[in-house]
């Protein structure tokens, strides 16, 4: 079995994995990083979105072996101690989650979106998050949260 080295939320792991093992199953079943959930099996819902070397990916669509030598950041790696990431604070402040199942992926995708577009319009947020499904909120508060998080990430508000 291939042996891979992968850093997840600042901890480096060496693992022997089947070539077919999905990154999300490596995270959840092998490494116990269950903060990243699975919502579908066709890459549509985006619940499992993580950062792979700084870019958001759907971890159900990445093989663990593809993450060899890479750095993965999950929702669990965003906050430092008690201090939440501005996007986490924004989702809380704007009531942008209800059941919260889509939230880890939504937050990771939103952070990536804001890195590319530091002051996104409503339209840009809606377009940027089209690959992340939420069944609870109707997205209105998610859009508000992402725009608020963008402001905070840019230091325009804290």
């Amino acid at each position: 079995m291939p042996r891979i080295t992968v850093t997840v939320d600042e901890i480096t792991y060496e693992e022997e994995v089947e070539p077919r093992l999905l990154l999300v199953h490596l995270l959840r079943d092998r490494l116990g990083r269950t903060g990243t959930p699975i919502g579908c099996d066709t890459g549509n819902c985006g619940a499992c979105t993580v950062m792979l070397d700084g870019v958001s990916v759907k971890s159900c669509s990445v093989l663990a072996v593809q993450a060899d030598g890479s750095e993965v950041v999950t929702v669990e790696g965003l906050s430092s101690g008690q201090e939440w990431h501005p996007m986490q604070r924004a989702f809380h402040a704007e009531h942008a989650l209800q059941c919260g199942y889509c939230t880890p992926g939504m937050i990771m995708a939103a952070i990536d979106l804001v890195r590319n577009d530091p002051d996104p319009s409503e339209e840009a947020v809606r377009r940027g998050l089209e690959g992340n499904l939420c069944r609870c909120t109707g997205y209105t508060n998610i859009v508000r949260a992402v725009r608020r998080g963008a402001q905070e990430m840019a230091g325009r508000h804290d």
Binding site: R28, D29, G32, R33, T34, G35, T36, P37, I38, T74, V75, E76, L78, S79, W84, Q88, F91, H92, A93, H95, L97, G100, Y101, T103, P104, I107
Partner: peptide, 21 residues
């Protein structure tokens, strides 16, 4: 009121049934 539930949900410290090992 901002929700008490959010703390675990936005940080990934959840207990979905599939998380139980």
């Amino acid at each position: 009121r901002r929700r008490k539930e959010d703390a675990r949900l936005v940080t990934g410290r959840t207990t979905w049934t599939d998380n139980i090992q």
